[in-house]
Design a protein around this nucleic acid. Structure first.
Lengths: 289, 289
DNA sequence: GTGCAGGGCTGCCCCTGGGGCAGGGTCAAC
DNA sequence: GTTGACCCTGCCCCAGGGGCAGCCCTGCAC
């Protein structure tokens, strides 16, 4: 008769594992001797080796129990299923490898390469670093919602950057950020921004300014991101709202509000401003879906 | 301000996961509102997306915490390490796939193919099914201890089967199993077995009969396996011992014991008999190692 | 007969990455 | 005021054991 330690060493497993298999019902509990020790017959070694063999082939213990008692056909079916699972696990890890390779290659932890390129270009053009941070965070959120469309949106943004005076917009905006609430030059800058928006809206159509069909909740989030990073933007928003533009992530024409004409909506959702002349374009999947 | 559900859906993770990340210290716990709800600012979305990005790339959560605060070099080193781990996991699963493929191909749950072939050959030669069961269990135990040598041992056994009258030995043994303790024909069979052993020992040398340097504890185990499966073998052992052979798995010459000349040793370790004329040959790794 | 080492016993907590549920509080809309 | 959707905490669960505590038991040496 064997002790648990002898059994384990014959079968090439740990004592702990043997007890575990007892607990899982894979290996029947043997008789105990007068002092409570488990005593095994030689056949237990064979059983245990079978269990080890299956376990080492990647069979989950729960299935080992079935397989030990399965007939030919059941066994074949189970093995096929386990192989399918193993293949899936391999594919998953291969996907993981590709992803971390991309992270290592410079994807700034959630930022696709194209976006990084776009941000680099803004930086090269002299756009204020705070604005770039806001842009980056916005793109991160956007990419998380609709990763498949980022490339297309970035391309469009790059195009705008090349053609439509968007650079001036960003530069003007950057200057505005350093004006305090009472600086008369802030008003001047707000005029300039409003002029720019109106001109673009006229040239390209209103949709060009607000063509990003970003789901409203996402736009709200991105507004909040911007305000948290660049608090002075709030004042700018008020000034722009008096000049006929509301929203920040998404810019929309409104009736110029003279006094305190805050639009309805929750929290910081509304209020004019304008870093992104409509974050890229279309079809963001709603975060509710 | 966002609720935990909004945060989770913006970042594309479950609420449960967000709480888990709090518990793990990956994401700082935010302020609570008057009723105890967590309230997040927009920046938390960005943080959470970073966490998700790393987690989806197969980075263990414990390392995500470090990586979020790592500089370029640390990040690269960590990524390299993670990639190494992923590759190892892939290789492990590929090994698993090969193993279960072999199981499905007929390896009788721990029996290498060569052994199965050997057993089939015994069966074809008309060897008693009980002996085949004993053989099989012995090989299972043996293969578990020294899988790399099984092929070589089987080849040797096959060779003996072809040349040295081993077949007769097995057949004689099979007949012996059905004789009860008092059957005179059992004595006759014992004589025949002893003659065979002596002849082989003379022709091939003593080592050929007991050339399996199976570690003694393993031999003991295999003896026990045999006696459990085929109890009548015990009587045969006694008769053989009177004729100068002791052991079962490993056969050794002894002084013929006339009366009750039991050899010393624990339990069922000793006692003559002889299914395997020395289980194959050499170098079994001790189960104690 | 006594001491010591090396087992064996049970039971509990730990790891990953959360899932699921219970039992209760809260919020917003109808 | 009620309903349904959220939110809270806390607990148990999955695989495959590892590790430790606290205790008992055995075998061997002296």
């Amino acid at each position: 008769m064997l002790t648990i330690g002898e059994l384990a060493s014959y079968a090439g497993v740990t004592v702990r594992a043997v007890r575990h298999y007892h607990a899982k019902g894979l290996l029947p509990e043997p008789e105990r001797d007068h002092s409570g020790y488990r005593r095994y017959d030689a056949g237990a070694v064979i059983e245990l080796i079978k269990i080890r063999t299956l376990a080492e082939a990647g069979v989950p213990l729960a299935r080992v129990r079935e397989l030990l008692r399965a007939d030919e056909a059941e066994f074949a079916a189970a093995v096929a299923e386990i192989d399918t699972r193993l293949r899936a696990e391999i594919r998953e890890r291969q996907r993981h490898r590709r992803r971390i390779a991309r992270l290592a290659a410079g994807d700034n932890l959630a930022l696709p390469r194209e976006v990084a390129g776009f941000l680099d270009r803004l930086r090269a053009l002299g756009v204020d670093e705070r604005i770039i941070r806001v842009e980056r965070d916005g793109w991160v959120a956007l990419a998380a919602q609709a990763p498949g469309r980022v490339r297309e949106w970035v391309a469009r943004k790059q195009e705008q950057l090349a053609g439509s005076g968007l650079v001036d917009f960003y530069l003007t905006l950057g200057q505005a950020l350093d004006r305090t609430g009472d600086d008369p030059r802030l008003v001047e800058l707000a005029d300039k921004l409003a002029d720019y928006l109106s001109r673009i809206a006229e040239e390209q159509g209103e949709r060009y300014v607000d063509d990003a069909d970003i789901a409203p909740p996402l736009a709200t989030l991105m507004d909040a991101l911007a305000f948290d990073t660049v608090p002075p933007a709030r004042r700018l928003i008020e000034l722009l709202e008096q000049r006929g533009w509301t929203g920040w992530t998404r810019l929309t024409r409104v009736q110029p509000a003279r006094g305190r004409g805050r639009a309805a909506g929750r929290a910081d959702a509304a209020g004019p401003g304008g870093a992104r002349a409509g974050y890229p374009p279309p079809g963001v999947t709603s975060p509710d879906s």
